[in-house]
Design a binder for these strands. Structure first.
Lengths: 211, 211
DNA sequence: CCTGATTGTAGGAATTTTCCTAGACTCGAA
DNA sequence: TTCGAGTCTAGGAAAATTCCTACAATCAGG
């Protein structure tokens, strides 16, 4: 903790400001900073003062005894695709406006997938075919880079004619054959389909649901 | 500034904690919180104390007089609480370590709840007691302003001794009695509990799950 | 070398924060 | 009901903070 006083002392000395003027900067009496450094009078700097000083000297608050910086830049925004517009093959007008989106912590996201954020998108689930795993209205995070030869057991978003559908895919061991199923047993399951028959949009790696 | 005292008072009252235990949470003398609220003794809360309280009650620091959370163009950031640190009454060293957080579209969020973003937080689910609705590792969005007299049927985060737990609450029609249940039938259900017996942190309004 | 202005220093006063304690009260168990 | 343990409350003590002030040192301009 003494380290903070020395650091502040050095900063003031280097800049040639003098204790008095720095005290005035804080809106305190002229002896305030001198007391802090030489007498250790306020054991800690007030939160507000610390901010002011860190800003003034252009150093991190941490140097003056502040909290470790919570790295504020690691936020990745993933847009929610408008399914109505994106499902068909017709050219999609990329409307900039009105897209809702989710933000994920970068570290958290890297925990989930190694995919680049550009290949991620969010799609709303329609219908009950994937109950109880996914319900109508859920939002699923889709990794568009995770298909093709990397296809493996799991839940995928597929393109079917002009719509996006969510299905569970199982790989038949050793072959090119795959099974496409809906978790809801009321829906049919297709066995032994060829990979080339299905258009995989991407793998579902996360979903959110309102309660 | 008085608003902060009232807000803290309300939080303590609603949760039914009492001033003394909250004072102990801060590692202060038992009269400390009472003095702050009734006498206005420390004009401001110490930075450290504010963090601890915000974490404990699952609200944003802003509510307790902290710095305003930057809302970047329609995106609301909700912090993930460090449950290990926030749940218990034992004096807790509020860990400064970088909190992960999620971002929600403001419009989307308002669709989900009318609560102010400052009263929202995210908690990780531990254990299988809420299977199949919630699984271990899920992240739930908690509305800390939605309890007390507004308690209604639904899933809530409760404080139990030194841990946070997620349970389903059902209100017995017409009375103060409530039922606390786990969705997993392997866990017991408690009937006819009095509202004052449980410490409600907030209502679960959304969750996310990795697949 | 003087003079006046400003600074750093340190003693101590004024104020605020923090703690301690005793009394009134509530609640549950005996 | 009585007792004991816990709470909230308020008064005031103890400790920390913030401020004030006088004094010595420094420095620039005469």
């Amino acid at each position: 903790m003494e380290h903070v006083r020395e650091e502040l002392d050095r900063l003031i000395l280097k800049g040639g400001y003098g204790y008095a003027s720095i005290s005035r900067l804080l809106g305190r009496n002229p002896a305030y900073v001198q007391q802090f450094i030489k007498r250790g009078s306020p054991r800690k700097l007030d939160d507000q003062d610390r901010k002011t000083l860190a800003c003034f000297f252009g150093v991190d608050e941490q140097v003056l005894g502040g909290p470790a910086n919570p790295v504020t830049d690691g936020m990745v925004e993933i847009p929610v695709l408008d399914v109505e517009a994106s499902a068909g093959f017709g050219a999609v007008a990329a409307s900039e406006s009105a897209h809702t989106r989710f933000g994920f912590d970068e570290r958290w996201l890297r925990h989930l997938t190694s995919a680049k954020s550009a290949s991620l998108s969010i799609v709303g689930v329609k219908g009950d075919s994937m109950e109880p795993t996914l319900s109508d209205g859920d939002e699923v995070l889709v990794d568009a880079s995770d298909h093709g030869s990397r296809l493996r057991d799991g839940i995928y978003v597929l393109r079917s004619d002009d719509a996006l559908v969510v299905k569970r895919i199982a790989i038949k061991p050793g072959g090119r054959q795959i099974t496409i199923a809906s978790d809801n047993p009321a829906y049919p399951t297709w066995h032994d389909m060829d990979r080339s028959e299905v258009h995989v949009v991407g793998r579902v790696i996360w979903f959110g649901r309102a309660l």
